[in-house]
């Protein structure tokens, strides 16, 4: 394991621990963050083993993780957002997304390819929901936006999924052109975005733990 990978795993682990602490403090909605972070750790470890031992195929864990990740972040949004209209569409999108992933699995990927389309659709949906959340933060406590936990979590989601969207969307084409360069560029873009993502989640959870009074409309 390289130092950069090690740092990445440490970040996810810290975020997971903080999410457990915030859940125990009474923030019930953070259970979804707990689940997704533990799933992330397991998925990353699985991927590392697959790459290290050169196991063929991407493993079903990626597909399952993709669906779980969307469901958990969508549920967190639903529990946080106060706008009923958007909550309805978010709830409605979960079974639709699961169905979409099942269809692409059978018709397109068959366990052989990285589910780029699924991740991009996931990213687009989460981008919309968390942009809405960013504009719905409750200013009622009269505190700075930077002390608002949901602000940091929303930024993390936006930066990661928004930043990776274009490259991931064109990844199959770039792989056909030059597989080595495609992966190099992907790591160059994905790694810092991942660090930003989990750092934002850590800051968000610290804000939640520090100030239990914050609620988002």
């Amino acid at each position: 394991m390289s130092y950069s990978n090690g740092f990445y795993f440490i970040l996810i682990a810290i975020a997971a621990v903080l999410s457990i602490i915030s859940y125990r403090q009474g923030y019930n909605k953070t259970i979804f963050i707990v689940v997704v972070l533990i799933a992330t750790l397991l998925d990353e470890i699985t991927q590392m083993i697959i790459v290290q031992y050169k196991i063929k195929g991407y493993g079903f864990t990626t597909y399952i993780f993709n669906v779980l990740e969307y469901c958990m972040y969508a549920m967190y949004y639903i529990k946080t957002c106060g706008t009923d209209h958007f909550k309805f569409w978010a709830r409605f999108s979960i079974p639709l997304f699961i169905l979409f992933c099942i269809v692409t699995f059978f018709l397109k990927y068959h366990f052989n390819k990285y589910p780029v389309l699924n991740i991009n659709v996931e990213g687009a949906l989460l981008f919309i929901f968390y942009t809405h959340l960013l504009f719905c933060l409750d200013e009622g406590e009269k505190k700075s936006i930077y002390e608002h936990g949901d602000f940091w979590i929303s930024i993390g989601v936006l930066v990661f999924f928004g930043g990776i969207f274009v490259y991931l969307g064109l990844f199959p084409i770039l792989m056909n052109l030059d597989i080595k360069q495609a992966f190099q560029k992907y790591r160059l873009i994905a790694y810092p975005l991942n660090i930003l993502f989990y750092s934002s989640i850590i800051i968000g959870l610290l804000c939640l733990i520090r100030n239990k009074k914050y609620l988002t409309r």
């Binding site: 960013l134 504009f135 930066v159 928004g162 930043g163 969207f165 274009v166 084409i173 560029k185």
Partner: peptide, 27 residues
Amino acid sequence: IFNTVELISIFFIILIAIIIITAILYY
């Protein structure tokens, strides 16, 4: 093609930064 894709990615990141700044000002 690779350079264009990189540029578009950077443009998207700048767009996200604008969204975040707008949200902060709105709040």
